[in-house]
Design a protein around this nucleic acid. Structure first.
Length: 715
RNA sequence: GGGGACGUGGCGGAACCGGUAGACGCAGCGGACUUAAAAUCCGCUUUUCGCAAGGAAGUGUGGGUUCGAGUCCCACCGUCCCCACCA
């Protein structure tokens, strides 16, 4: 065979590998284990070159580790619940299950064609009751431990589609499908208590020495630990009877307490709601503040607005001072205590607020080199270091010493205590969606929230659902939700919310380790976990990777796992980009319709059919809207798997973006051909002359000066 | 507003602990093979001066440390990413 023909060679070896079962992971194997995993795909229906690059990397690693003598587990499955299936159902009337399973069939064929060393015997899809039933089982266990709970919380509510949206589904303050302004709405939702592990999740990062620093830093910032003081300001005179003795605020700057000129509570703070219930103007203010968007533009332009409740509190360190209590739109209910003390001299937001409502501005931190008699705050709050003044017992201290002194005094006088607060919020896992894992609970008018008995798991989705109308199809299904209460036997209703799909992906790696086990996590998980090398996109740096780290710990405490960290090594690969092509009228043109002409060093693009000149745009992430998507199947057809993979892995460092170019894959293809020709020209192993090349021996070939130079010697 | 990463030929990029800058690939130029082309193979290819031998400059900009800096330090310019009314 003179030339390499991938169409002949590749199927032969794929079949040989399959038959020999070389990719099967063996449980009983004396060699040390290696668990290689790439983030499993959503079955969108078509394999993307980004997938091809991701799985080629994982495949190279899996084969390399096997060659090094490890017993390798390298599985594959499908993150199969999610919105695209519902959208397809709504738009084309197809059944989400059929749509999803059909996509899996197509993508499995495409993946297998890539010749990946995957143990397909462990394949599963998260939309299969065999998988999600186990998820329901461990969720019930976490509920019994108090790690899963229901509470009323503020959510992004799409008033047109009538569903909660994840933050990622809110684009510039509007629902991504309906384009309706998203409201902040109070809704009772299921939560997982990830905050109980905040400290451990933060501390655990230190041990992850095979994770990119960038990802660890992003998680650290996301968890956002801060040390400060919780302090109660007591009401003066007549406060509403049910308002309690005062308002508890949280601050990281207790050193600036003597600069306080007001208190402010969030519009959702119980006190604000209490006032709103008695005062129409307050109610109006609260309603308006709640409507405010969370998009970047809105926050930047959002004016600081407040409502004076008329209540006053006593300054805990200076009882003669009275401070007004405001409701302010810039105070967040779900951070700290939902209430702050305003120190305009040393906080920019407080300063803007104070200027608008003519509240006093008293500096208490003197920057080095300033004269205390002359120093004043104009437009910019001073947030830097300095010496404390105007502050009684803290006068003369530096900022850090004053913080400690203020906390000590607040604790001694009983009104406050040092407190560590995290930016991290509990994980809201409820979605009003029909194509997801049902949350296994039953609402009984007599018994309240009752767990589905373990024997009744899995709680299966009904066979058919109506996705053509907005809202949750499970909630309006005629029969599905009506059940007898497991506790009293009376009529009751199922929970109709389903899990956020990040729950599905928070433990799949553990299921792969014992994919057919009776229990959610089988005994073989002990052998394989943790994942030794995990590979995926940087876009999951926080959400998926943090959720998986949390669930691993929660399941460990439940006795299901015996590891702290799910992924010992992490690698984040770059995206595959491609040039874009546009007509003069701005219309995007697909690469396959473009002819590239080189004129000296400059490249020009023309429409391959009409010759119309096209504008070449910078390489950007492949997307349908810019029509610059390359389907791996077409490339593999032309160049074969090896050339395609070689190009994707060699043209650019794996953690950086790679620009897809036809010239590049052609170069890779030439190399594959040269290697083939080199070996093809050698005599067969049994001796005798090789066809067409004379009786050359390998040594002659290496010495002949032709072909590749010898590799450099390395230490 | 806060945090982080990165700036090297026409292009993607290499250079590991501070020690020959530009590996490898693409594009380009020249040659071999061929009636011709494709394919393949060989050579050249940072810029600039020079017929050549050879010389000079050169890793975003300006400083600094060092015998020696793409690499370390400071400032600036630019690009990208993450978070963001987080008290």
């Amino acid at each position: 065979m003179a030339r390499y023909d991938p169409k002949q060679v590749e199927p032969k070896w794929r079949a040989a590998w399959d038959q020999a079962g070389v990719d099967r992971a063996r449980e009983y194997d004396a060699r040390p284990k290696f668990y290689a995993l790439e983030m499993f795909p959503y079955p969108s229906g078509r394999l993307h070159v980004g997938h091809a690059r991701n799985y080629a990397m994982g495949d190279v690693n899996a084969r390399f580790q096997r060659a090094r003598g490890f017993s390798v587990l390298h599985p594959m499955g499908w993150d199969a619940f999610g919105l695209p299936a519902e959208n397809a159902a709504a738009e084309r009337g197809v059944d989400p299950r059929q749509w999803t399973l059909g996509n899996i069939e197509v993508m499995r064929v495409e993946l297998r064609r890539l010749g990946l060393a995957i143990d397909w015997s462990r394949e599963f899809a998260t939309c299969n009751p065999d998988y999600y039933g186990h998820q329901q089982a461990w969720f019930l266990k976490l509920w019994k431990r108090g790690l899963a709970y229901r509470k009323e919380g503020l959510v992004n509510w799409d008033p047109v589609d009538m569903t909660v949206l994840a933050n990622e589904q809110v684009i510039d303050g509007r629902g991504w499908r309906s384009d309706a302004p998203v409201e902040r709405r109070k809704l009772t939702q299921w939560f997982l208590r990830i905050t109980a592990y905040a400290d451990e999740l933060l501390g655990g990062l230190k041990g992850l020495d095979r994770w990119p620093d960038k990802v660890k830093l992003m998680q650290e910032n996301w968890i956002g630990r801060s040390v400060g003081l919780e302090l109660r300001f007591d009401f003066t005179g007549e406060a509403p009877a049910d308002a309690g003795p005062g308002v508890t605020v949280y601050t990281t700057r207790p050193d600036t307490l003597y600069g306080a000129s007001f208190l402010a509570v969030a519009p959702d703070h119980p006190l604000a709601e209490l006032i709103a219930g008695r005062d129409e103007r307050a109610a109006e203010f609260v309603a308006r503040a709640r409507r405010g968007g969370t998009s970047e533009a809105e926050i930047e332009s959002a004016e600081k607005r407040g409502f004076d409740t008329g209540l006053t509190v006593v300054h805990p360190f200076a009882p003669e001072r009275r401070l007004p209590v405001w409701i302010a739109n810039f105070v967040l209910m779900d951070y700290g205590t939902g209430a702050i003390f305003g120190c305009p001299a040393h906080d920019q937001r407080d300063l803007e607020f104070a200027r608008k409502y003519r509240l006093p501005v008293t500096p208490v931190v003197l920057p080095a080199g300033e004269d205390p008699a002359r120093f004043s705050i104009v437009d910019e709050a001073w947030t830097g270091p300095g010496r404390i003044y105007n502050s009684a017992f803290m006068d003369g201290m530096d900022v850090e010493a004053a913080k400690a002194a203020a906390v000590a005094r607040a604790e001694a006088e009983g009104g406050g205590k040092g407190a560590v607060v995290y930016r991290l919020r509990d994980w809201g896992v409820s979605r009003q969606r029909g194509w997801g894992c049902p949350i296994p609970f039953i609402h009984c008018p007599a018994c309240g929230v009752v767990p589905v008995p373990e024997a009744d798991l899995p709680v299966r989705l009904p066979e058919s659902l109506d996705f053509t109308r907005p809202g949750n199809p499970l909630a309006r299904h005629p029969t599905w939700k009506h059940v007898a209460c497991p506790s009293c036997g009376g009529p009751a209703e199922r929970e109709t919310d389903t899990f956020d799909t990040f729950v599905d992906s928070s433990w799949y790696f553990a299921r792969f380790a014992d994919a057919h086990a009776e229990a959610p996590i089988g005994p073989a998980a002990k052998r394989w976990l943790p994942v030794d090398q995990y590979i995926g996109g940087i876009e999951h740096a926080v959400l998926h990777l943090l959720y998986a780290r949390f669930v691993t710990r929660a399941l460990r405490d439940e006795g299901l796992l015996d590891i702290d960290e799910p992924f010992a090594g992490l690698f984040t690969q770059g995206m595959v980009t491609h040039e874009t092509y546009r007509r003069q009228n701005g219309e995007w043109v697909e690469p396959r319709e473009v002819k590239i002409v080189s004129e000296g060093a400059t490249r020009r693009a023309r429409d391959a059919a009409t010759g119309e000149p096209l504008v070449i745009g910078d390489p950007v992430k492949m997307s349908k809207s810019k029509r610059n998507v390359i389907a791996p199947a077409e490339i593999v057809d032309i160049y074969g798997v090896d050339a395609t993979r070689l190009f994707l892995l060699s043209d650019s460092p794996p953690d950086r973006d790679v620009q897809w170019t036809t010239a590049g894959v052609e170069g890779a293809s030439r190399l594959v051909n040269r290697i083939w020709a080199e070996f093809d020209s050698l005599p067969p192993l049994g001796g005798g002359p090789a066809p067409g090349s004379g009786a050359r021996r390998p040594e002659d070939k290496l010495r002949s000066g032709g072909g590749l130079p010898p590799p450099p010697l390395r230490g």
